[in-house]
């Protein structure tokens, strides 16, 4: 029987830039950061209140991807094809103002929905996420 999700991989265009975005802008904590030679780093981060859930920041150029796959992935990410997930926060207006002040790009400002208030932002690669304050 499955129980929990512990890791998820997000493809990013540039690992160093993603590192800066997820730690300095979103405030995530680095869990593992191990150099992997030509493959960059094995780099995982966690949302501040969820240390058991690791997001693997996977560069699109990596041994497990063919050149063609890397290029296709890059194109799709830049186009904004991937909605990766939903993050929740305690106060969406404060979080929205803070992230905007840090230069995070929002494609939807806080908007009332039937389940709470939601905004949409993009990471530095182009992956998009929902930011929600659930009521």
């Amino acid at each position: 029987m499955l129980t929990k999700m512990t890791h998820i991989s997000i493809n990013v265009l540039d690992q160093d830039s993603a590192f800066d975005f997820y730690t300095n802008k979103l405030g995530f904590k680095v869990v593992v950061d191990v150099p992997m030679g030509a493959d960059g780093r094995w780099l995982t981060v966690s949302p501040p209140d969820q240390p058991g859930f690791e997001i693997i920041l996977t560069p699109v150029i990596r041994s497990m991807y063919s050149k063609e796959t890397s290029e296709t992935l890059r194109e799709l990410i830049v186009k904004g094809s991937f909605g990766v997930g939903i993050f929740t926060c305690k106060d969406i207006f404060a979080t929205y103002e803070e992230l905007k002040a840090k230069g995070v790009e929002f494609t939807k400002p806080p908007t009332k929905e039937f389940y709470g208030t939601e905004a949409i932002f993009k990471d530095d690669s182009g992956n998009w996420f929902s930011l929600a304050q659930l009521t």
């Binding site: 207006f93 404060a94 103002e97 400002p109 806080p110 908007t111």
Partner: peptide
């Protein structure tokens, strides 16, 4: 009720100062 409330949300100026 699906209203965008960016600029109208309650006490935006307070939020900005605290942030």
């Amino acid at each position: 009720n699906r209203n965008t409330i960016t600029e109208q949300y309650p006490k935006i100026y307070l939020y900005r100062r605290i942030v």
